[in-house]
């Protein structure tokens, strides 16, 4: 679940089509692609025609063929990693006009990376339509060494840079697209609770 009482915790209301948008850019991973298929089924035929889908992570060649068919007539591009997917997104946004609507569907690091990149093009995060799908994995920033640990599925987690044991707080930074990790045994070194697989 991505529900939390903490107000800095983003919420993802789900994808809905903006029928007025001149063009739609949709970034997703393999799990998020299902949400995109559902989005298309809720929209009229021309919506998909005006849409470009960047599938950024986790697809095999066979997935790609299936998705191309499922998402037709949208333009669908496949990227090997989230990083290259965001680089592709930036190319689209660089010279884009107003009237473009941005969507993101998939894991939280994917949604967060889209929101983070869009800010560089003055796209307000509230105008981005988002839906969480698939893994609950998180990107965590160590508040001590500032290093990012990717694909975190447990709490606590070991910082992949400085090695401290971090408690993953629900406190989230849009600018960093990451949750905050704070040393869990600072007061009594070694006093660490059982590791829980909270973010599978």
């Amino acid at each position: 679940m991505t529900i939390s009482t903490l107000k800095s915790r983003p919420t993802y209301p789900g994808l809905s089509p903006d029928h007025n948008a001149r063009s739609n850019i949709i970034v997703c991973d393999k799990a998020g692609a299902e949400a995109v298929t559902e989005l298309f089924s809720r929209a009229d035929d021309t919506f998909a025609k005006r849409s470009t889908v960047i599938v950024a992570e986790g697809t095999t060649d066979q997935d790609a063929e299936t998705l191309k068919t499922a998402l037709a007539p949208a333009t669908v591009g496949f990227q090997p990693s989230l990083e290259t997917g965001i680089a592709r997104l930036r190319e689209f946004l660089k010279d884009a006009p107003m009237g473009l609507r941005l969507y993101a569907a998939g894991s939280e690091p994917l949604i967060g990376s889209v929101v983070q990149a869009a800010a560089d093009y003055s796209i307000d995060h509230l105008s981005i339509r988002t839906e969480h799908r698939g893994s609950l994995k998180r990107r965590v920033q160590c508040v001590h060494c500032k290093g990012f640990t990717e694909n975190v599925t447990t709490n606590p987690v070991t910082c992949s840079h400085c090695g401290l044991t971090l408690m993953v707080r629900d406190h989230y930074s849009r600018r960093l697209a990451a949750f905050q990790g704070v040393c869990i045994d600072a007061e009594v070194p070694g006093e660490v609770p059982e590791t829980e697989a909270l973010y599978q």
């Binding site: 001149r22 107003m98 609507r101 003055s122 796209i123 307000d124």
Partner: peptide, 30 residues
């Protein structure tokens, strides 16, 4: 270009017209 903001001030019918025009052109409410 992306990242442009519109501001409108005037009589109410004009404001409504401008806001609706922007919405129909796919401008986000933000």
């Amino acid at each position: 270009r992306l990242g442009t903001h519109m501001y409108v001030c005037g009589p109410k019918p004009m404001i409504d017209w401008a806001l609706q025009t922007a919405e129909l052109l796919g401008w986000p409410a933000e």
